[in-house]
Each structure stands twice: as structure tokens, then as C-alpha cells.
Design a protein around this nucleic acid. Structure first.
Lengths: 245, 245
DNA sequence: AAGTGGTCTAGACCACTCC
DNA sequence: GAGTGGTCTAGACCACTTT
């Protein structure tokens, strides 16, 4: 699930067209109806249609070509959702894998300095949730989440075992907005290595992220340890027009 | 460098504000002038100002807060350019490191199947450029580029030693638009391992990418092999409003 | 010439924050 | 209430592709 926040027109239109692409009502290699036709279809102005199409462009679902139209791109379905902020649980649903989550810990702890660095004060405590994710019984990811209070006071066990994001957005009504993410490859402590059943070299892919609300409040720090042989990060990126030189 | 394509108003405004943020004329934690003030400042309509601010929002430079204003975010400078399509050469300039590029090969070759898969026909030939990137004499990245003809017929040696992107955009006038990228960790062949001076385990971070022009023509396939101990990928991502369930 | 997307405008109304 | 951003509109003019 995650965000049915499509209250406004442009978001509803974007969502609707996205679904039609997903269900191949609009197919890769074909053009969407022209903006003018979409105006009639949805009964809205052209700028609103264009804002909806901008969202699809940003996602990599379409490419607009001047004089021609909006081309539906051929992005393999398994590469969605790409990049962005997406939880294991959501990804799981989308890809239809059989995954389980085991909650190993849930208690207040001091945020490790490596995670806190540059984001929150050192020595701050937070609700620490440790979860081991398995696919077909094989451990794939170990998630170490640190949830800041405020805005998060407690997390029910069911939410920890399921999707934290869904709980935050749906139950708490938090407005999750953006995140910074850093991917490295590092040797990890023995405990983590054994949980993930790593080889002798103890190398894991470490994804550290900081997630913020719309009002810029940081609320979640995460370190995810991935088995290197099962790790895959897929990204779609557009060339930006802004340069910094 | 790269793309001074800021011919239109919204891009110029976005670029101008971005530079003012970079030079701390607008500082993290402070608000930008209001949209109304920016209208006066740049002599444009509010929607145009808003489109410029949208670009900055997408980049992670600002966060808009309703009723308050546009807050300049505190993204450490070393994390720019974030994500997106950014070449080694550009990154190098931005970070001011001392790096060298050694061109090992430049000849026509068949595109390896792993790279071609899902993007171009198997068995297709392309201009293969192999480059070893070093920082302070230490090998960091091995780039295997395959450039498709058309649109690329040849690449001068100077361009290969410098920035391919700069050559494509500035000299050839190509309109680079988007790319898909995939990051994995894999054991690599002995030759690559020795070029990168890897440990006994021969593990490297492999970034495979496919880059497209604005007219959706694929033109560049790349496999980059990174030393795991020097690899770092930094990303800024916004929560999307479109869901696929 | 007709149809497409690209850009910009001036204005309207709303929701939220702050005083 | 005044100021902020969020959304939407109707229309204009331009650049490009197609026939």
C-alpha cells in the first residue's frame, strides 16, 4: 500500500495513468493520448495534465518527445519500485516474494555514532528495532532501525513484524518526505555475520539511511546489512539541468 | 561543467538559486525569499518560480513547508552531486581530488551479454573503451564502456581520457536524458582483480548502467568495477505519491 | 498546415502558520 | 488578518514532427 494521498487532481491522474501502464492498457513503445486528449479525458487544464505527466516522467514510466507525444517506456516490472524510499515489506508485496520478518530486539538504545553523525546529536537515545529478513528461509537482510521520539513513542509488535512505513503513515499519520542513503561494503561484527550466515570474509553491504518528515524532522535512522551475494540495488535516474561548477 | 542548457527562465532561476545556496548566500536552516518576492526578483510569474523551486526540491537542496516558506536543507557539500547520472570526471572536479584516468583499450567489440540483456540485441558490436581510474595513484574504478553506433562513431583520445559525458554533450550535442543503474557485489575475473589490486576474495562492486538520449535511443552501456573498500554511493530520494498495489 | 509537447502568464481560491 | 505555499485554470506563443 502506502499513501493513498491522492487527494488532488494531478496526483489522481498520475496514479490512474500509472495503473493503466502497469496493466498494459498503455503499452511500452506506444504513445499516451495527447495532452489535449487527456485534458478532455480527465476534464482538467493542460498544466494539470502536464504536472501529472511530470510525475510519471520522473519515475521513468514515460519519456516525453516534443512534436510526437509521451512514449511509454519499457521498464521491466521487477525493477519497480526503483530507488526512492521503499521498504522491504512494500517491495516484497510488489515483487510477490515469500518473505518473513523476525523481530530480534525492540528496546531503547543509544544511537550509534556512525548513524548519528551529521544528522542527530551524539548520545541520543531512540527506539531500537532489530529485524532479520528472510526469503525462503534464507537470511537476506538485517535491519537496525532507530526511531526518534518525538515523533515516535512506541511501535506495536505487529507493526514491527510488518511494515514500519505503513504503520507510520497510516496509523500515526506521519508525512514521510525524503531520505538520504549511503551504500558501502564493509566487514561486519561477528554477531551480524553469523546472523546473515556470511562467508569467512565477513563482508556485508551496508545501507545507512536517515529519513525525514515533510517538516524536516528526522525520525528514522537505519543501518541495513545485506548479504553481498543477494544484494541488488536498482536505480532510475534522470539527468539534471542544474550544475555546480 | 555539463549542460549549460539553461536557456529558459525556470532553469536559469533554479541554477541561480542553487549557486546562491552553494555559496551560502542562502544558508541551511534559513528560508529562501517567498515565492512572491522571488517573482519580483526575477520578474516572472509565480508558476515559473514554483517550477524552479521544484527542481531544487527534487535535488534535495530545499524543502518547502506550507505556511512557512522554502527551507534550505543542510546537505553536506561532499554529498553532491547526489545520485543521478554523474561521471567520475565531474565528481572529481567537484570534490577537488587528484585523480588520473588511464585508457587501456579503445576498439570495437561485441557487447557482453550481461550488459546487453534487456537493452540491446545480443551480439551487437560497439566501441569498447576500457579505463582505469586512480586517485592518488591507487586504482579505484575500472570502467568498461560500450558506445553504440549510431549515435557515436568515434571518440578522440582526449575525450576518452577526460569526461565522456562532456564530449557527448558539448562536442556531439547529444541530449543525454536518463539512465538505469544496477549495483551488485560479485567476484570478478582475475584480470580485473589484479588491475584493481583486489584482495584474495576477488570481490568488486559492479555498477552496470544503460544511458539513453532524450529520444529514447540507448547509446552507452557501462560496467564499472569498484574496489569494495573505496566504494561509496550516496543518494537523496523523495517519497513518491504513486503506488503500484 | 495541423498536431504535438515546452514555456510562461495572471489570476483565482484554498490550507496552513504566525502574530 | 496577513503572509506563506498548494492547486488549478484558460489562454497565449513557441519549437518541433508529421503529412
Amino acid at each position: 500500500m502506502a499513501r493513498d494521498n491522492k487527494k488532488n487532481k494531478q496526483d489522481s491522474i498520475a496514479q490512474d495513468i500509472a495503473l493503466k501502464i502497469q496493466h498494459e492498457q498503455y503499452q511500452p513503445g506506444n504513445l499516451l493520448p495527447s495532452e489535449h486528449q487527456l485534458c478532455d479525458l480527465y476534464g482538467s487544464s493542460r498544466e494539470t495534465i502536464r504536472k501529472a505527466l511530470d510525475q510519471l516522467t520522473e519515475l521513468g514510466l514515460i519519456q516525453k518527445i516534443r512534436g510526437k507525444g509521451s512514449l511509454v517506456l519499457d521498464i521491466q516490472r521487477f525493477s519497480f519500485p526503483v530507488s526512492g524510499i521503499t521498504s522491504f515489506q512494500e517491495l516484497n508485496k510488489t515483487l510477490g516474494m515469500h518473505a518473513t520478518t523476525e523481530v530480534l530486539q525492540k528496546k531503547d538504545d543509544i544511537v550509534p555514532d556512525v548513524l548519528a553523525k551529521g544528522h542527530v546529536d551524539f548520545g541520543r537515545t531512540a527506539l531500537h528495532i532489530e529485524r532479520l529478513r528472510k526469503i525462503d528461509q534464507i537470511p537476506i537482510v538485517l535491519d537496525e532501525d532507530y526511531l526518534l521520539n518525538p515523533p515516535i513513542t512506541d511501535v506495536p509488535d505487529e507493526a514491527a513484524a510488518g511494515s514500519l512505513y505503513e504503520y507510520f503513515e497510516k496509523s500515526l499519520g506521519l508525512d514521510i518526505s525524503y531520505a538520504t542513503k549511503e551504500i558501502t561494503v564493509e566487514p561486519v561484527p561477528e554477531r551480524i555475520a553469523s546472523l546473515l550466515a556470511l562467508n569467512d570474509n565477513n563482508l556485508a553491504v551496508v545501507v545507512r539511511s536517515m529519513t525525514y518528515l515533510a517538516d524536516t524532522t528526522p525520525f528514522q535512522l537505519t543501518a541495513s546489512y545485506h548479504r553481498p551475494d543477494r544484494f541488488k540495488f536498482i536505480d532510475f535516474a534522470r539527468r539534471r539541468k542544474i550544475s555546480f561548477n
